[in-house]
Design a binder for these strands. Structure first.
Lengths: 110, 110
DNA sequence: CCTATATTCACCCCTATGGGTGAATATCGA
DNA sequence: TCGATATTCACCCATAGGGGTGAATATAGG
């Protein structure tokens, strides 16, 4: 999972994923959209491959890249866990505030 | 967002978040659960702070840390986008297979 | 066969990270 | 006031990333 999140932590790589979400493309085509060198793009692609987010189909000279967002499900599950934790806390705060209001009303009635 | 995902990309930091999800704790208390030095934990905590995932309340000598999972909502939204893309693709594949079956049946009828 | 094109490989440089140690700082508590 | 405790600060070291360039490799296509 470290590799997955690490791959996604870089904005250039996220942009590459966005590019591939629009359709499969060769390394050169992807590189054309970025101000960095072709070699740098190649490295980023390799990291995305290691993270399982990009698949490569070699067709002669051309390496066609395609997006595979499935591995992100793991990260999504992890995040959902913490979001749930946070929602529980907000829920608890909400209960606390309601309880507080009740007590205040009681005090005023005295 | 780079900082957010980068912070979460490290397993030690994810473990620290898990520890804080169980309840607020001081730096020393968190460090007790890990084989690394107190100083290293302190650095990890600083990165989690920069990512907005951990808040610190200084009470005298003690720095009490608490989890704030709210920033993860941003990451969740990003991931959801790509998951949706992938589901769309699977949907398209499903349609393709169904269409294929229909054609096969037609051919058999000839 | 020969040249142009597509990619990677092998380096270089710089910065950030993850780990450590020891000293400085600040507060607690007697 | 003074020792003990909690944290950070200032370094050191090694590794990984992100950027670059130039050479090597492999295939397309005349």
């Amino acid at each position: 999972m470290d590799k997955l999140l690490g791959a996604v932590a870089d904005s250039t790589r996220r942009a590459i994923l966005a590019r591939l979400a629009a359709g499969d493309a060769r390394v050169t085509e992807v590189a054309a959209d970025f101000p960095i060198s072709l070699n740098s793009v190649s490295k980023h692609v390799r990291m995305l491959e290691r993270a399982g987010l990009v698949r490569r189909t070699v067709r002669g000279r051309d390496h066609v890249l395609s997006l595979d967002a499935a591995p992100l499900a793991e990260a999504a599950a992890w995040i959902a866990h913490y979001q749930r934790f946070w929602e529980d806390r907000l829920e608890a705060l909400d209960q606390f505030v309601k309880e507080k209001r009740k007590q205040t009303r009681k005090r005023k009635r005295k």
